[in-house]
Design a protein around this nucleic acid. Structure first.
Lengths: 217, 217
DNA sequence: AGTAAAAACGGAACGTGCTCCGTTATAATA
DNA sequence: TATTATAACGGAGCACGTTCCGTTTTTACT
């Protein structure tokens, strides 16, 4: 069988750095990351691509053809593959970005809402993350090297963000239960995975229940 | 994304039964299995297909295109897919057949050679089996349901065949080592896996060494 | 501004898995 | 043996991932 490329480089330089929300070149809050030494159009296309991929995956699932994503972004497939040499690389990039966005949302919520309410809102966002990316669990388990970094990122970005909100709510006295923060998030995660295959809207409700449970000892 | 078939039937009726060497309709020793209630041409093609697949996989690796196998068998791809709905089903069928053939060879060798010599010869055949199907280890680990039955078959056909030869050689006094039969085969199997990727011919030599080791206490 | 080198682009084209359906071979029946 | 129902066949064709390469855009340097 013919194999075209012999070595596998998971991401282009630009692709890797565009996902780093804490990149030194990151633009103002809410803006998109920037990258020195990369042509402006390449940078633009990378962002467009990531956005398009997020939308297409959300609407058509993780099996959506690369062509559709390229079309939505208004670029050729060649451009997609220059930024993400393999399809799984693109999937991983989108998911990384969404994890980071979810993690970043914690600070914003903490700044604008009372502690427990911030936690409630964040948990809903967390459900949406898991819901959109149902099927990623399968992908993660597939052993594809493109997904290697994701579990680590979950622990390093998502969990700390959650712990911050959780402990703040506990310090505020809103949480009566003595459950450990990590146990709680772990449970919520698995709840999503087991439920949202058949009934996506059910996950929100159930996690909501779980959150309310925190109010009692 | 478009998905054509919704339900997945791993093998056609004929395909399943053709692999059963102990099938009640099996023809004379050395001949091919037969199957009532199936058209003669279908039966013929199934055998041809399995033979062709074995050859193509051996020569071009497990990644060989289905088209090539169909061409070698002198049939259309449609015929391949009628017998084996998904590519992995064909791979699994070939491997099952080869495992069975290897297991069956044990009796023949035992009948025509002195005990230890029979064991030596069978171990070489075992190496060839593992060698031809290098890459199957990966396939097995891929989680594809087509491969689900293979480990069980290995234990139920291959291992007993080996144990028979081994115990016969031990009873004959040719084996001085007190190693357990299963431990020995397990070691040989792993030796093959770790070596034959880079140097296929080396596996035969090393397993040969292992076998000679049995002669000493 | 003009120019040249380099980076990035776009999409035709390829290889592959799998399906669809018109054609052909087989086997039961008359 | 002729007829006919139907099992099985063959291969064109489609969707998709990925590559290749001629064209366009950007950037650095006069």
């Amino acid at each position: 069988m013919l194999r075209y490329n012999t070595e596998h480089v998971p991401f282009s330089k630009g692709a890797i750095l565009a996902m780093e929300s804490h990149d030194p070149d990151a633009a103002a809050p809410g803006g998109a990351p920037a990258r020195r030494g990369q042509r402006a159009d390449a940078q633009r296309n990378l962002e467009t691509l990531l956005r398009a991929a997020k939308e297409v995956f959300a609407q058509a699932g993780l099996d959506a053809p690369v062509r559709d994503i390229a079309a939505r972004a208004g670029v050729g497939v060649g451009t997609v593959y220059r930024h993400f040499p393999r399809r799984p690389d693109l999937i991983a990039a989108v998911f990384r970005q969404e994890m980071d966005a979810c993690a970043d949302a914690a600070d914003a919520l903490a700044a604008t809402h009372p502690p427990f309410e911030a936690l409630e809102l964040w948990m809903q966002r967390f459900v949406d993350l898991a819901a959109t990316k149902y099927g990623l669990a399968r992908a993660l388990h597939s052993g594809d090297p493109a997904f290697d970094g994701l579990p680590e990122r979950r622990e390093q970005r998502l969990w700390p963000a959650f712990r911050g909100l959780f402990e703040r709510a506990r310090a505020d006295g809103a949480i009566k239960s003595d459950i450990a923060a990590d146990d709680f998030l772990y449970a919520a995660g698995h709840l999503c995975l087991s439920v949202q295959d058949s009934r996506p809207e059910q996950a929100r409700r159930l996690v909501g229940l779980l959150v309310q449970g925190l109010r009692h000892a």
